[in-house]
Nucleic acid binder design. Structure first.
Lengths: 276, 276
DNA sequence: AGCAAGTATGAATCGGAGA
DNA sequence: GTCTCCGATTCATACTTGC
């Protein structure tokens, strides 16, 4: 894995950034990428959780839930959040090929805002896909339903885009029942897959599971395609793309996460390609 | 079942409309209902792009700009839909008690717009609940995932509302696993439950299943509560509410559907109340 | 070594009363 | 709006410890 750290760069050529991770702010880096360059986008933005200041304590073991308290999830208001989302989606749209598709993931905290903004920008939603978690954290005060799902929006740039990639047979394997249903049941990322920092704590608050990206890439890309992840975190997208013979471009602003990516790629992921 | 058909009415008292269905336009009828009158709302709005234009326009008041047919597929249509949703949610909010909760159901065509509008209006989302259909209509073209879900948004009027009703133990029965998960797996409305017209065709295109309303009412209301459905269709909400010893107020503009409601209530639904 | 018991933790908008 | 204090509250999974 090669890191690109040239903040002074004017523009990037596609070859020089393919299968690379670029250190920098997605909004600025994206502007330097050629138009209509990528086949698929996976976007995992901050969810703007607005967690209460009050700590949530497990009374039986007297420990505190370490919720998402990262600076990258802090916004002053919905308006501020909306503007951020809108700017990212504008830059992303420019670098998408005409037939490219985009995946965006979030929870109820923000997925509705994102979806409406996408529609208003002209993106055409193909599906919502529900990630049903087998092991969510329960709501133990019993004041709400346990939030066991995240929602993915799968869309094209424009209503007129038709010949996008969809591997129906693989989609049938992943969904529930015999139809290619829009529900994926899989566990959250934990155990040895979860990257840790020097103190054994999780390196990233919200690392996405390999299996989730495997399903996204297999259903919506072909071998040799270029997958873009503008907010790569610890790089699950590129890690899985490489294992499935896809190309990738990742952008990440946090050196701590970049370090995790570099460490991860030293042991390439092994995945069997479907015979089809 | 008593029908209220008094378009000339000034204002309604709560007793005179409780356990009744009111014939009329929801936007106008809601204005005649006292403020802070209901405990729970179930809103099943038109699903954008699934109804012909004239069907949607019947709901809108003073918003139709003539001669913009060419723009119907673009932003103009979204705006008109948004305004309709905003108006309904404004009237609904007024008649909700401070601790009342609201359920809104839709598919990806419109749920994102609705959710953002709700947030922008100050509604505070408690959960999204995913209705996973056991018997969805397959997507034969194979160009998308089969749409096997609908999304429900469950919300309170305001972020500060706390003492809303949530029957945790019942929610645990309905969800998947032991946690009260936000996923309900149940079939679409079919068979003898589905109301038919004189020609044996389905009377309503999107009749909601009894079981869906049973779960909504049992998890989020108490006996004696008032449940409001401003766009009642063939009246599943009131039909289930009555069987569970809840009160209801239904509004419906289409006499054909009202007729279905009247017919339905002649054979009251039998449901066992949970012993709790 | 293997099995059992104990411990840790997850994108969480998670309470209420009173000062 | 803040703050403090009181009290009731969780499951699936993976890892660690102990025998």
């Amino acid at each position: 894995m090669v890191l690109i750290d040239r903040p002074e760069a004017a523009n990037y050529s596609l070859p020089e950034i393919t299968n690379r991770v670029i250190l920098g702010n997605a909004l600025e880096v994206l502007k330097k990428i050629p138009a209509e360059a990528v086949d698929t986008v996976f976007l995992d933005p901050p969810y703007f959780l607005q967690l209460p200041k009050k700590e949530l304590r497990r009374w039986t073991v007297n420990t505190v839930v370490e919720g998402v308290d990262d600076d990258w999830d802090k916004f002053g208001s919905f308006e501020e959040y909306d503007e951020f989302i809108c700017r990212i989606l504008t830059e992303v749209k420019r670098v998408m090929k005409p037939q490219a598709t985009i995946w965006v993931i979030a929870t109820y905290h923000s997925i509705f805002r994102i979806g409406k903004i996408m529609q208003d920008m002209g993106y055409w939603i193909l599906n919502d896909v529900i990630w049903a978690k087998t092991n969510p954290m329960p709501n133990w005060l019993g004041v709400r339903f346990t939030n066991a799902t995240e929602t993915l929006i799968w869309a094209v740039k424009d209503r007129r885009a038709k010949k996008y990639t969809f591997n129906k047979e693989l989609a049938r394997e992943f969904g529930i029942g015999k139809v290619a249903a829009n529900i994926w049941v899989l566990p959250i990322c934990n155990g040895s897959e979860r990257l840790k920092d020097g103190n054994g704590k999780k390196l990233h608050s919200t690392q996405k599971p390999i299996e989730l990206l495997r399903r996204i890439i297999l259903t919506s890309t072909r071998e040799g395609d270029v997958v873009l992840d503008p907010m790569a975190g610890v790089g699950t997208t590129g890690y899985v793309a490489q294992a499935l013979n896809r190309n990738f471009i990742m952008i990440e602003i946090n050196p701590k996460y970049i370090e995790g990516i570099m460490r991860r790629f030293q042991q390439p992921l092994q995945l069997t390609l479907p015979s089809a």
